[in-house]
Design a protein around this nucleic acid. Sequence first.
DNA 1: ATGGTAGACACTCTA
Length: 269
Amino acid sequence: MSLTIATWNVNSIRIRLDHLARVVARCAPDVLCLQETKVTDDLFPTEALAGLGYPHQVRWGMKAYNGVAILSRRPLTDDGRQDWAGRADCRHVWATVDGGPGLGPIRVHSLYLPAGGDRPDPEANPKFAHKLRFLRAQARWWKAQRDQGPPAVLAGDFNVAPLESDVWSHARLRRVVTHTDVERDLLTRMMRAGGWEDAVCRLIPPPQPVFTWWSYRTPDGLTADKGRRLDHLWVSRGLAERVSDVTILKETRAWPTPSDHVPVVVTLA
DNA sequence: ATGGTAGACACTCTA
């Protein structure tokens, strides 16, 4: 028995339904963690996604911005949601899925961390200050949650590229939001506090570069491979040895009218 | 220092 979990920032679930169908045809994940759904729950495409094989859904969205969801082929139980850094902006949901014999129940989190604006200065840029507050709060939360409840998966768009090999040029991006020292340090702290292990790094060891995002604004960004690894899938310690496959679906970025992020797909066996 | 593209929504925001 195995469980395949994907995480993908779709940049609008309604405009990405066709791509979602193609992703499902490609890798048939059991569980899909989505970010930037950009839709309120009453307008969420529940039926269309059930028709793709995902009748079990947890979604939490708002108008125009943010929004997260978990779609599953198998029943979801004990679902929850939480606000962070003093804002009600639909960035974190979770639910428990049965991984089957040998895996048992697994709590899956879909998380969308703030992008942080343009200037990496918390004094001058309130969005960056918010991002740092969010990261610190996450580290505190996961430290308290550590070793509680079932084995867990934390997946999503974290908007931080923590390793030097997570960006196309470490030297040129060190002062760019997503790859500054303070963000990289806080994400590492959050990971250690929760006892998380990076499932992708487990099978694709650094410094092998892995990118999951290519900016819309860089015309040659994809062909020149000027990417960053902003999307992550972490597993709690008990699951680290179960990571049996990792796939980054880079091809989706070259499809017509793509999301700027691509799916990260991890199989636990 | 600036502007580049995309999505939502209603003209400007966020990424």
